[in-house]
Simulated scan of single mutants.
Amino acid sequence: MVITLRQLEYFETVAEHGTVTAAAQHLFMSQSAVSNAIADLERQLGVKLFVRHARGLSLTREGQAVLGRSRHLLREAADLEANAAKLRDDMSGPLNIGCYSTIAPLLIPRIVADFAERYPDVRVRFEEGSRSELLQGMTLGAHDVIVLYDYRFKDDLSEIGHSTQLGSIPPYALLPPGHRLAGRGVVALADLAADPFILFGLEPADQYFLSLFASEGLSPDVRHRTGNYEVLRGLVARGVGYSLLTQRTRQTTSYEGIAYSAAELDGEYAPLGVVAVIPSRHRMTRKLDAFVTSARAVFDEAPAYDRG
């Protein structure tokens, strides 16, 4: 048996107005819809709620008892809705962010600093991880929002939440300082494919970067694979091979301080979209709206060498 709030609302309105016609007019509903709702409610409860007479309807003894409980439940539902609205507007308490590892260095420091200054009662908590780790965390309720790349070959984001575009980042090449193409500014994958390649292996970025070669009918010579982009920069700077990334730092140097060369890719490679995903079960609260606004500003204001 499933009793709905709408049935109770119709029942209370009929009790107050004394006729189905008057209640239907008050509710801006058809008489048949109101009559059917009352009949369904009587059937589900197993009691007769109204006595029908020439002048309209009057409550039975059982109907009077049900009306008292119905009014209580409707008040409780109204209070719940009001409290939920207050929670949606509340700028305090935790905000749990999950962020893809390579996006985090660009995004998280700005978000934490912005919220500390503008919304000091909000406690920002964040975790970094791979795409699968973030999606699992959201499924388990660990994150209020996750930020990750919207890979075109993945179509599972709509299954877990609502995606909001934050920005987009095109890929670029990292070359050893002594590479024959270093300093050119723009390089073609066809001119690099035969060289030793260092693949960024944090899933599913590896699929994405390999797909760039596949789109040109090329197969890179993968010598090393790493999910740590600082290790990747270090290998490139040491002359072990070239690589591809999306996120850039302001300085083209490795963790050791050794310089490498960055170059744009010659070709039509669509930028990777960066999205914020909010669980389907959640509404857009003021905290989440403030997060999206702040996150978009990070990508809108980032200069070209930050956005790749």
Results as ranks from 00 to 15, higher is better:
Ala193Asn: 05
Pro105His: 02
Asp191Glu: 15
Asp289Lys: 15
Leu106Asp: 03
Met29Thr: 07
Pro170Lys: 07
Asp156Gln: 01
Gly183Val: 13
Leu157His: 05
His143Val: 00
Tyr269Gln: 13
Leu218Ile: 12
Ala304His: 11
Ala84Gln: 14
Ser215Asn: 13
Arg125Ala: 14
Tyr208Asn: 00
Gly167Cys: 04
Gly239Thr: 12
Gly183Tyr: 05
Asp114Ser: 11
Gly241Asn: 10
Leu73Trp: 06
Leu175Phe: 09
Ser101Val: 04
Val147Leu: 06
Thr252Gly: 09
Glu128Thr: 12
Ile108Gly: 05
Asp40Gly: 00
Ser219Thr: 15
Asp266Cys: 13
Glu62Ile: 01
Val274Ile: 11
Thr60Gly: 07
Asp206Arg: 10
Ala173Asp: 11
Tyr229Gln: 01
Ser211Leu: 08
Leu181Phe: 13
Pro271Asp: 08
Met29Tyr: 03
Cys99Lys: 05
Arg238Met: 14
Asp155Arg: 14
Thr246Asn: 15
Leu134Lys: 08
Ala77Pro: 03
Val274Thr: 08
Gly241Ser: 07
His26Ser: 08
Pro177Ser: 14
Gly267Trp: 02
Phe115Lys: 12
Leu232Ser: 06
Gly308Gln: 07
Leu174Thr: 11
Phe291Tyr: 06
Ala194Pro: 06
Leu80Glu: 15
Asp289Ser: 14
Glu9Trp: 01
Ser211Thr: 01
Leu192Arg: 03
Asp306Leu: 12
Phe197Asp: 10
Thr226Tyr: 11
Val275Trp: 03
Ala262Gln: 09
Arg283Tyr: 06
Gly267Asp: 13
Phe200Gln: 08
Ala259Pro: 12
Phe200His: 10
Ile38Asn: 02
Met284Pro: 03
Asp266His: 15
Gly18Gln: 08
Arg6Ser: 14
Arg281Ile: 13
Asp150His: 06
His17Asp: 05
